[in-house]
Design a protein around this nucleic acid. Sequence first.
DNA 1: GTTATAACGGTACAAGCGACTTGTGAAAGT
DNA 2: ACTTTCACAAGTCGCTTGTACCGTTATAAC
Lengths: 212, 212
Amino acid sequence: MPKKVDHEARRQEISEALWRLAGARGLEGASLRDVAAEAGISLGRLQHYFRSKDEMLLFALRHINRLAGDRIRERIEALPGEPTPREVLRACLSGMLPLDEKSRVGVLVGAAYFTRAAYDETLRAEAKNGIPQLRALFTEQLRRAAERGELPPERATEDEAMLLIGMVDGLSTYVLLDVYDGRTALRMMDGHLAQLFGTNGATAGAQAVSGV
Amino acid sequence: MPKKVDHEARRQEISEALWRLAGARGLEGASLRDVAAEAGISLGRLQHYFRSKDEMLLFALRHINRLAGDRIRERIEALPGEPTPREVLRACLSGMLPLDEKSRVGVLVGAAYFTRAAYDETLRAEAKNGIPQLRALFTEQLRRAAERGELPPERATEDEAMLLIGMVDGLSTYVLLDVYDGRTALRMMDGHLAQLFGTNGATAGAQAVSGV
DNA sequence: GTTATAACGGTACAAGCGACTTGTGAAAGT
DNA sequence: ACTTTCACAAGTCGCTTGTACCGTTATAAC
């Protein structure tokens, strides 16, 4: 047999080229030839690793979802000491906002995929299966917070968790549309957290939330 | 001179054909020929009313935005008697959710336009200029509610208004992705309103669910 | 009646698309 | 040494796209 090539790695490289294009010009504006050129390879080579365009798009979506998950997990583990539920929540939520160029492209690509998913059943199944996990994580944090007396118990619900996700989603939309900049969106998110946890004056940075 | 034709009316008819296609197959999947066929006219005729595809897309976006605004205004005026700020807010918010087929297509088309707007400056300017108006309307209702003692004064802010919009936006996303159905989204929205207005046990009123 | 022009329908076109086929070189197994 | 098989490059195919450009008809002004 001839030489072996790491298909997974090649596919990831191609996916990253696709994101660069999608972040700059949109998902629909990226043809196979464009992606190949961006990746610095020939069209034939790209087609050697992806038998069809749909296969490429699906792989790239899964890959970007996985990276986004890693990103959030890293953020949680980077928290100093024993992080409070509120700190964990804030790390997740702010990690979902398009604050730097990297996550901006990520959200942009995600939005492009979402538009496609609305009509493509395969993509839709892929896009929605990550949400229950995220919701479960958030619900768990809310529950922990309620246990510690930092949150009214009646607000430690799946609905409240979903509201948090929806809020960040909506805020991301407006950041991409230049209605708000990242700083403003972050401030509004913190405002909601403060309202939720009942601390109006102090910011989220201080962990002096010990008293009710 | 030959016969005169109402250009505006023709353009609106074409726009509506475009939405039907965009709601079913996406904005990118609708070619000029498809739109012409859906509208029951020839390609030449379509080109007679829109000199380019971009011109058609822009006109259709403006038209759908205007109709969405009318829809919300109608909903407010349809409220019985002297509506409370909370009732006005609820009417607006639930009017933004994709609950029936009509508004579902509207949200779907809006999402498709949003994806395009992220890369197209002309479209972006168009898409974002409606948001401050909506925010102002919501802020005004919050202020009125605070005046009437139905809302803590510190929550009658632009940020809180924007959070409401973002929440509905996020919920709409998940309804389109089939994560939640319309009824569930509506219930979550009501939950947030109840929390905001401080009425935990009772719903917004006996006839609150009639608007579904 | 003539003419100018809006309102079309039909067609042609260049460009670009995804998918497919073919050809070539090289490396691993026998 | 020979064969098999992977890893590509390059070209081609049929098709769709937006756009431009005809030709024809009908109507209103003169």
